Simulated scan of single mutants.
Amino acid sequence: MSREGLSVSPQSEHYRHNSFNRNENIVHPVDSTTNLFRAPLPQPYHHPVRQVTMWELNESQRHPYPSIRRSSEQVLQPTLFASNSFPYQPITGFEPLDPSQEQNTVQQIFIAEPDEDPMQHFVIIPLGKTGAGKSSLLNLILGYDEFKAKAAAKSVTDCITERTGVWAIDHTESIITVADTPGFADSMQRDTEFLQVFQEYIADLGGRLGIDAFLLVFQCDSSTNNIMSILEHFNTMMQQFQPTTWWKHVMLVFTRVDYYPNLKFPPNILSKKQNIAEVLIPSIQKKFNLESPPKYAFVSSKAPNCSFSKKGQCDCFAASKYHLDQMRTLRSRINSILTDNGGRWIPSS
């Protein structure tokens, strides 16, 4: 069938394409006089009313009570003052940034708050006999082997070595200044020589920084007579210093309290810890006529062996937690010394 033979129905006005007829109107007028196309607009419950802001009021209206202000305004006022007094000035090369007004002082230019609190700084001096674990304790605090540590009768430290590092516990970092000292009260018949060295260093460090704590280090299995003799030696050495409050900054540290699987300590370790807490500490307080018993802590500088190597279950996590708890206790006791005494001990000149 040919195309001419097809019957084509006339195209309705609705589907008629208007692009071929330029004379026809594209937009047809609509009669809006009737109510057919009218609809009421939604009305709110109340019309919004603009409130006057605090910045559109004068000073007397803004602050009827000058002594009472909002905290946000107290923070914003210095910022507005700084921005109005010192507009932005680009710095080119090495030209200094001068204030925009002559009456402004340097203190007014630098109006800023610190980003974070400063790091806490500990200053400690460990003292103890040769082999007590002073160097190992300091290496454990610093997190790396900085000082020579050797369990031997002969001292491996012939002089006082001072170091400053970072003490990190629970993602909290503190600056710490420590000193590795020779054997105290047993240094191969050189007690008189080392006594003068200790006194000079304590006077120097106390004058420069002050001292947070004297850590008197002992092995956990040390005899009571041995501990008392070292404390008497320390008491004699410190008699020349003023003020005589240095006993309040003394802390006893007992080493070789190592980790045991499931914290099942041998009976001798448990009895020794109980004897220290119930007998030794009260005896020290009574002997040296102290106002309060000295603080003490137990630490271990020995790396634990995983029980998996002994055909047991892995306890590396428990061992790490045990060592971390010891460091928390040590730092907490040092902080309590500072809190109880209002800061560091500083010798008077």
Rank of each mutant, 00 (worst) to 15 (best):
K154C: 07
E193R: 01
E200V: 04
G206I: 07
K150L: 05
L216V: 14
K148R: 15
G207Y: 11
G210Y: 05
I160R: 01
F184K: 00
T177A: 09
T157N: 09
L205Q: 08
Q199T: 00
D180E: 13
L127N: 01
D180M: 07
D145N: 12
A168W: 07
F194Y: 13
T192A: 03
P182L: 02
A151Q: 11
L209K: 15
S222R: 10
A132Y: 02
T172F: 09
S222Q: 14
I176N: 11
F218G: 07
D186K: 01
Y144I: 11
V197F: 02
P182I: 03
E173K: 15
V166P: 04
L140W: 06
T172G: 04
A203S: 15
D212H: 15
S136V: 07
V217A: 05
T172L: 13
G207P: 09
T177H: 08
K154G: 06
D191C: 01
A151I: 12
L137A: 08
Q199L: 01
A151L: 11
V197W: 01
N226A: 14
I211Y: 03
T181C: 03
D170Y: 05
V178F: 08
Q199R: 02
F194W: 07
V197E: 02
F214S: 03
K154P: 08
N225Y: 08
P126Q: 06
S223D: 05
R190E: 03
I202H: 00
Q219F: 07
T157G: 05
S135V: 04
I211H: 04
A203D: 07
